[in-house]
Design a protein around this nucleic acid. Structure first.
Lengths: 170, 170
DNA sequence: TATTGTTATACTCTATAACTATA
DNA sequence: TATAGTTATAGAGTATAACAATA
């Protein structure tokens, strides 16, 4: 009994890098969201606050560009955070159409807390690897991400408006 | 000027394994979906057909369990594939409540094609790495996935009914 | 004419509950 | 009483278009 001619690569999914990445990425995101919940934050809020903590006074459009979300979505995100007293809309000095965004002291402390949650989550996620292996994994992932043309720190899950082709990977 | 006491780990996102995994996982999934589109399939269809090609005659419930989706969702998936003549519902020999699912010859060829698309996608994704590094990456990811308690080949993105805690990672 | 913030609308996904026919 | 398949409904998330104020 010979091989079926139509027999192709029957690579099990769990040996495919794309499946492993997708599976683990989804898991990591869910898990992070869960551990962040006690702070009343979702991962997207964390990203927003983090970006804003790097440079306050940004407009909603600037922040949206930096995070890779559409400005329409940004309105709702800022609404939520402003309602909780974490972000403040002030008048933009140079452009009367735009809002200048600022963090409250509470939000600044919250970002620190969320960073600690993220670090704990990271440690837990790769706990099966040695310190050397952890560094190696990060380095390999960074190279794959760079080759894919992914912007550092910009999450495609927040991305909006895919004009068909999702980026381009030489 | 000394360090601010509230200063915490300001690890950039692009150095966090969880962020890299989530970012790359999302990218890989989108990209795979895009490359699969010419076949008229979504990744979930591919997973279904693949699972069914391993063992035909399964019930919808069995297949749902194997893929980690709810049986309600399975109805719609099978509906779509049956309408395209890829999957057939037959009467289950042992249980008159259940359907026994079978692939058409067209579907069997389509699975082969989809596997080739997946392999090409994988090669492209990790093209920045040497062959040794590719194997290393897969091995590291598999260990992380095993430690997270992820079932081999079951994608959390298809999962349904999270009772709060997403799995458990020692 | 283009851009910022905003609102409204539609569309996809997903979660939940309920129903039927069987077991 | 529980299970397989099915259907309906509600909710989240996202995409698109449009509008007023300003550049």
């Amino acid at each position: 009994m010979r091989q079926t001619p139509t027999e192709a690569a029957l690579t099990p999914l769990e040996a495919r890098p794309s499946f492993l990445l997708s599976q683990l990425g989804r898991y990591a995101a869910e898990r992070f969201a869960h551990q962040l919940r006690p702070l009343g934050l979702q991962p997207r809020h964390f990203g927003l606050l983090l970006q804003l903590s790097r440079a306050e006074g940004q407009s909603q459009q600037q922040l949206a560009d930096g995070l890779g979300v559409h400005r329409n979505v940004m309105v709702g995100l800022i609404d939520e955070l402003e309602a909780r007293g974490l972000v403040e809309r002030r008048r933009h000095p140079g452009d009367r159409r735009a809002n200048a965004l600022y963090l409250s002291p509470t939000a600044q402390r919250l970002v620190q807390q969320a960073e600690r949650v993220a670090s704990a989550h990271d440690r837990q996620l790769v706990a099966a690897l040695s310190a050397d292996e952890q560094r190696l994994l990060i380095s390999l992932l960074q190279r794959v991400a760079a080759h894919a043309g992914l912007h550092a720190g910009v999450h495609p899950g927040l991305q909006t408006t895919h004009d068909g082709e999702p980026h381009a990977a030489g």
